[in-house]
Amino acid sequence: MYNSESEIISRVRYFVQENFLYMHTSFQLGDDDRLLEKGVMDSMSIVEMISFIESEFGVQALEDEISEENFGSLSGIARFVGGKKLLRAS
C-alpha cells in the first residue's frame, strides 16, 4: 500500500499533524526535524506513535529498535518502516 519512503512520510506527517500538531496549524514539520527536540511528541505520544506505525504499516518495533534514529524524525520512521518491509519481503 505504501511503497515509497515519500508515501510513508506523507502518511506519518498527516498522523502527526492530526494528533500532535493540531494546536499549531501553521507549524511546518520538516522530514528531518527531530520530533522530541521540536516538542512535537512527549513521552506518552511516543507510545501512541509506535502503536500507529505498527498497525498502519504492519510492522513490529522491538524495544531495542525504538530509538532516536528510527523514530526521532519522519525520515527516520520512513527508513525504518521501509527496511522492515524489505526484510519481510525477502
Partner: peptide, 9 residues
C-alpha cells in the same frame, strides 16, 4: 513500547 526514545525525553 518506550525504548531509547522514551528515555531520551
Amino acid at each position: 513500547k518506550g525504548g531509547e526514545l522514551w528515555r531520551r525525553f
